[in-house]
Nucleic acid binder design. Structure first.
Length: 405
DNA sequence: TCTGGGGTCCTAGGACCC
DNA sequence: TCTGGGGTCCTAGGACCC
């Protein structure tokens, strides 16, 4: 049985701000995504604000209505990233099997030797966060035998919680007392569809035969079937195995809905340049440009197109503008966004020896650390794996067909 | 004066290739 | 001889996460 911890910070951006600025402590505060104070939502609300019913994701105007004295702080993502790095460094001390799930969440699988010691480690982590990062920063930790249930356990007690769900039997007991959309993977749409089938809780979901769920939800049916039983096999993806980003995008909601092509064009130009700059800073080029917009009535539409690999803002803009004009029927626009996917490194062969050397060194070092700890060949280089694959006998049937054609 | 902005993954269907 | 089938790429669209 695995021991997996889910660590989730409470009111993350808000507590980081309170930690940084003592005058904000003990007060209801809300953190926005940036400087804008119109048509925006809260990225976090402090415990004090939550007492008024203010929630993360709530539009600013609504939060102010519920809590007129709320202090609004413009978010500072660099500050949060810096704090996140520090907390990940603490977690790394306990296991290399660390998955970064979001800016304020991580999974940590403890090595077998720590079996039974999950709670002890969790308490240590909490106390180290307290002393090394700040007394205002708290997290909730869930401990269980898989990621799904660990995350669920972590959500049961907030703030500063510590909950263990030790077995499937216990998990089922917990599941039977929570709403369907309380677990990660069931959102409003799936919940609604389940409700229409007469399913309102996990007990009822468990009574549905697998075939019915597969018919209704395709492969997602298997997830629902398993989840209702506390089963999930999604492995931890350690940070050093995470692939590079798959898409880079930006979107912008206009202060007041617009049907002025010049204004929309200006916004798109800005967005594409921002995206291109990020591509270049990561030494990436992309070839699929997706454009998306939301009309004043909140309905959305979008299109994608493929262009030659580029990190040039103007090339991306031209493609996006072309697509926009194909879709736009002169209606008022509320939001536009673009994103570039199908990314690849720009001229990987041009990496300097130094850069390539450092990259290799980092990989080798990581592999060595893990192999030393868990035995030889737990992890192998990609090239080793590849040569194993290549040495496999060719499928004669396929070879034959290829030959005929 | 409603409801941000950053992402990920999955499926389906058509085009095209061998 | 009626035309199977494997595979990839591309676009559209849906759902989810924090």
């Amino acid at each position: 049985m695995k021991v997996i911890l889910h660590i989730d910070f409470n009111s993350y951006f808000a507590t980081v701000e309170q930690q940084a600025n003592p005058r904000l402590r003990g007060k209801p505060i809300g953190v926005t995504g940036g400087d804008r104070m119109i048509r925006t939502v809260l990225g976090a609300a402090s415990v004090e604000a939550k007492k008024f019913g203010v929630k993360t994701g709530m539009p600013l105007w609504q939060a102010k209505k519920l809590c007129p004295q709320i202090i609004i702080v413009a978010g500072d993502s660099d500050k949060y990233l810096e704090t996140t790095k520090r907390f990940l460094n603490i977690l790394k001390d306990y296991s290399p099997y660390l998955e970064v799930f979001s800016i304020d969440e991580a999974f940590l699988e403890l090595p077998g030797a720590v079996r039974g010691g999950g709670e002890r480690v969790a308490k240590q982590i909490k106390s180290r966060i307290h002393t090394e990062i700040g007394e205002w920063i708290t997290c909730s930790i869930g401990i269980s035998y898989n990621k799904l249930v660990a995350k669920l356990a972590g959500s049961l007690q907030k703030p500063d919680g510590l909950v263990v769900i030790g077995s499937e039997k216990e998990a089922v007991k917990v599941l039977d007392n929570i709403p369907l959309d309380e677990i990660c993977g069931i959102g409003s749409k799936i919940k609604h569809r389940l409700n229409k089938m007469g399913i309102f809780n996990f007990k009822q979901l468990r009574a549905v035969p697998l075939n019915t769920l597969l018919f209704e939800f395709k492969s997602y049916g298997q997830f629902l079937y398993d989840a209702s039983r506390g089963i999930s096999n999604t492995p931890i993806t350690p940070f050093y195995e995470k692939e590079e980003v798959k898409s880079i995008g930006h979107r912008h909601t206009i202060d007041t809905d617009s049907d002025d092509p010049a204004e929309i064009k200006q916004i798109l130009l800005k967005l594409t340049e921002l995206v291109a700059r990020r591509l270049r800073s990561k030494r990436l080029v992309g070839r699929t440009v997706s454009l998306w917009f939301r009309s004043a009535d909140f309905k959305g539409d979008g299109m994608q197109t493929t262009i030659p690999y580029t990190a040039d803002g103007l090339e991306i803009f031209k493609a996006a503008w072309r697509e926009f004009n194909k879709l736009w029927c002169k209606q008022k626009i509320r939001m536009v966004g673009i994103s570039v996917s199908n990314l690849k490194p720009k001229d990987p062969e041009n990496l300097t020896f130094l850069e390539e050397d450092l990259r290799q060194q980092k990989i080798i070092q990581t592999l060595d650390e893990i192999n030393n700890k868990y035995g030889e060949f737990t992890l192998q280089r990609g090239t080793l794996l590849q040569s194993t694959r290549m040495s496999r006998k060719p499928n004669p049937f396929l070879a034959d067909r290829r030959f005929k054609i």
